[in-house]
Amino acid sequence: MSDTETLVRDIEPDDGLGAAKKTLTEALLYLNAVTVTFDGFRALNELSFTVDPGEMRAIIGPNGAGKTTMMDVITGKTRPDKGDVFFNGGTTDLTRLDETEIATLGIGRKFQKPTVFESHTVLDNLRLALKGQRSALPNIFRRETAAERECIDAIFETIRLTEHRDRLGGALSHGQKQWLEIGMLLAQDPKLLLVDEPVAGMTDAETAQTAELLREINANGHSVVVVEHDMTFVRDLGVRVMCLHEGSVLAEGTLDQVSANERVIEVYLGR
């Protein structure tokens, strides 16, 4: 299940390929031998991994390991030079779609630097993110439904920002912005959340709360991929960990397994 040929056969329906097919069709996200080069620098080097539906996965790795580039590839911001990226059990080729189409498919992304709409209120931030009509013209005449209102109220409870709903996004603290952004992801109701360094700049209490928040989100049926440097946080998550190095997977397993790996210690954790 590692070469492209198998893959091509796999995505044809009812070809009776049994076991090999199972892996691809069961994976929510499927990356195979993805390579991205910037001016001769290999940001991703034959990167392959899969994320199952409902799974939460943590990704660690030193700076320049390709974590952000990997997210760029999945979300359509960067086109891979070669390799396959499939979503939804192999039904959708992400390399052919742009950011907007991929977002509509159900992949949400939180940026490394918290990015909220600063001159909108917290409430409007969530309204904008809320799953629903995305076309320009109908949105001129759109009115909010009661169901949408309830949905937003529920998200406010989840991200604990109810009392800040009328403040401007730009006026929030750093940690609050991170939560708002996660809330916006929830509002999109994606199948897969890509979360880039969600606890950077947070206090310990906030970090623990964020871990809890992400676990809660995962428990509600969303798959989550978290990129994070904070080992305490990763431990709090208690999920499968993958370490990237120089654009490919160095080690994969539980946090204890990965931290015991010689190579991981050498390139990332340090002795």
Binding site: A103, T104, F111, F117, E118, A129, R134, S135, Q188
Partner: peptide, 12 residues
């Protein structure tokens, strides 16, 4: 304010 965010939110 944040065009990239808008795209990733699913708006064209």
């Amino acid at each position: 304010d944040a065009e990239t965010r808008v795209r990733f939110t699913g708006y064209r």
